[in-house]
């Protein structure tokens, strides 16, 4: 038994799961784009198959595609799974795109208990709801926190429980402008704009 390359992994996955696309990121990093509906069945197979045996979930994270200069532009949240096999010593990255409006992805915590914490973190910071997670509570921020901070349209709070966030005369530093900001991010004006909040 030896480690399989990405092409070999793809071959085996494609034979069973034609809906899963093999893709490469802009700098050539390979990953599998998985539809959310097929995720659970796929990872169950990936974990149990004798040749693949992905016994560890190395990382589970995500990022907001809203301002990413992708073609075509998207405002979905990408959930990234890094699988690793301690038996076969190979690695695989999966990706699920969760649309911003209905940000729901099935939970994989029943397979890898490591996902219990990772999914709570992604829920807290990116607002992806993991269907089937036993205790999907915020893990980093307080339970009554508003918003999901790592989303690109997050507006910084001006106060928490009546204590102002900034010192007198202090302002949030302007978050550096990105290329294409003016075109893409039509700032959704908040109802009560936080004082000194960075431009959306």
């Amino acid at each position: 038994m030896s480690a399989l390359s990405f092409a070999e992994l793809c071959e085996r996955v494609h034979a069973r799961w034609p809906a899963v696309e093999a893709k490469r990121s802009d700098n050539g990093q390979p990953f599998l784009l998985v539809p959310a509906t097929e995720l659970v069945a796929l990872v169950q197979w990936l974990r149990s198959d004798r040749e693949l045996r992905f016994d560890a979930l190395s990382d589970l994270t995500g990022y907001d595609l809203m301002k990413y200069p992708a073609t075509p532009p998207s405002d979905a949240i990408a959930v990234v799974y890094v699988l690793f096999s301690y038996v076969q010593k190979h690695k695989l990255m999966l990706r699920v795109l969760a649309p911003r409006a209905a940000c729901v992805v099935p939970s994989v915590s029943f397979l890898w208990p490591a996902a219990l914490y990772f999914e709570r973190e992604v829920w807290d910071l990116l607002g992806v709801h993991f269907d089937g997670h036993p205790t999907l509570l915020r893990i980093m921020t307080p339970q009554d926190w508003v918003g999901h901070p790592l989303r690109k349209d997050y507006i910084y709070p001006s106060e928490y429980h009546g204590v102002p966030h900034l010192r007198e005369g202090q302002h949030f530093e302007h978050v550096p402008q990105r290329e294409g900001d003016a075109v893409k991010a039509a700032p959704t004006a908040p109802a009560a704009p936080a004082k000194g909040a960075p431009p959306a």
Binding site: T141, P149, Y154, P157, R167, F172
Partner: peptide, 8 residues
């Protein structure tokens, strides 16, 4: 400057 959760 950039943190949303730290008390200043």
């Amino acid at each position: 400057k950039w943190s949303y959760s730290v008390l200043n």
